[in-house]
Simulated assay, not measured.
Amino acid sequence: MIRLDHQIFLYFFSTFSSSYIIWFLWNPIWFNHFCIVCGLSIISWTLAYYFFEIFNQEMIDPVGKIVLITGCDSGFGNRLACRLDRMGFHIYAGVLLPDGDGAKQLQQKCSNRLKIMQMDVTKPEEVNNVVEQIKQSGMPLWALVNNAGIGISVPFDWGNDIDVYRKVFDVNIFGVVRVTKSCISLLRQSNGRIVNVASLAARITSPLSSHYSMAKHSVRVFSDALRREIGSSSKMKIITLEPSFYRTDIINHDSMNRMRRKIFDETPEDIRENYGEKYFRIFDKSNQMTESIIKNDYEAVIEAMIMAVAGENPKLYYRCCNYYEVIAFWALSHMPEIIVDYSVKYSGKLNKLLWIKN
């Protein structure tokens, strides 16, 4: 019996061949012109974006403007808070641990314009407290950067009920919505900006990342909804960032391995038996593969964040990735599903990494 994907390929090949033969025999001039116009349009659009980034470097005046950033304990949020503080913004840096190393580093490096705020985005009372302090400052809230996020990499059926999904969504999407709703009145008054940090993982879902990819895809959808609901009726700007693989606390193999063991122990016994202890070797190989593509210098992400917050005319999307990743992830995400599945399955021999006993 012919597999479904093979049948589709046969239909595609026969349709393509027949169409090509008809075109070759007919060879209409208008069709050639159409192909040329399409090609030139793609090239011109790409060049337009390139020139836009080169010549569109005007920055707004930061004096007297507040920027609220979530997830400043480390990573992108921590670095962005420092850079914006040097530019002259008043930074409200939301952290989980006000006495942690990340918060102490910010206090040492930055001016007194930066304020450390205890802000767990899953706790409404902490979010409301931060918003109230911004109101009492008497200065406008210019930008909200929804940066806080967590990542868990395990098979979709691990864990007790939907606990893993709930934990990831509580921070990565419900926290984003909660903070945005709490700040929206202040942002409307200032005609400010909402900067949401999504991920390239929202474009291509790889094995073991269903929780993270689903949440980050929801961030993209939320940004699109805000832009079409709010941005069309006001001067507010909604910007989305899609970083690729950078070394932040989300990609910490030691803590990730401990979390995997904990989640595995909470998984129902019949599911644990299906995987077995041997499956943990797969995570070691997965970690090695991640190390081969991860980037230590995330200055490109910070520059994109700065343009999103302080640029006079920011883009709607900033895809913080190299050309290879643009092709491998963003462009691939627009391909038919059968091509995406094959690419993900065979790229890096992932099919060998994802073996489970039946």
Score class of each variant (00 low, 15 high):
residue 216 K to S: 04
residue 217 H to G: 11
residue 222 F to H: 12
residue 222 F to P: 02
residue 223 S to P: 05
residue 224 D to S: 11
residue 225 A to G: 10
residue 225 A to Q: 06
residue 229 E to P: 05
residue 230 I to S: 03
residue 232 S to Q: 11
residue 234 S to V: 07
residue 234 S to T: 14
residue 234 S to F: 15
residue 236 M to H: 14
residue 236 M to K: 03
residue 237 K to F: 10
residue 238 I to F: 11
residue 238 I to P: 08
residue 240 T to R: 01
residue 240 T to D: 04
residue 241 L to G: 07
residue 241 L to W: 03
residue 245 F to W: 10
residue 245 F to L: 10
residue 247 R to S: 11
residue 247 R to L: 10
residue 248 T to D: 13
residue 249 D to T: 12
residue 249 D to W: 13
residue 249 D to P: 09
residue 251 I to Q: 06
residue 252 N to G: 03
residue 252 N to M: 01
residue 253 H to E: 02
residue 253 H to Q: 05
residue 254 D to W: 11
residue 254 D to N: 08
residue 254 D to S: 02
residue 257 N to T: 14
residue 258 R to W: 01
residue 260 R to G: 04
residue 260 R to I: 06
residue 264 F to E: 06
residue 265 D to W: 14
residue 265 D to K: 07
residue 265 D to G: 00
residue 266 E to Y: 09
residue 267 T to V: 12
residue 268 P to G: 09
residue 269 E to M: 13
residue 269 E to S: 14
residue 269 E to T: 03
residue 270 D to W: 13
residue 271 I to A: 08
residue 271 I to C: 13
residue 271 I to W: 04
residue 272 R to C: 05
residue 274 N to L: 14
residue 275 Y to L: 05
residue 275 Y to S: 03
residue 277 E to F: 00
residue 277 E to Y: 03
residue 277 E to G: 00
residue 277 E to L: 02
residue 277 E to N: 00
residue 283 F to V: 01
residue 285 K to V: 11
residue 285 K to W: 00
residue 286 S to D: 11
residue 286 S to I: 03
residue 287 N to F: 10
residue 289 M to V: 14
residue 290 T to K: 06
residue 291 E to A: 12
residue 291 E to S: 15
residue 293 I to N: 02
residue 294 I to L: 02
residue 294 I to R: 11
residue 294 I to N: 04
residue 300 A to F: 01
residue 305 M to P: 03
residue 307 M to T: 09
residue 307 M to E: 14
residue 308 A to Y: 04
residue 309 V to A: 05
residue 309 V to E: 04
residue 310 A to E: 05
residue 312 E to K: 15
residue 312 E to D: 05
residue 313 N to E: 00
residue 313 N to Y: 11
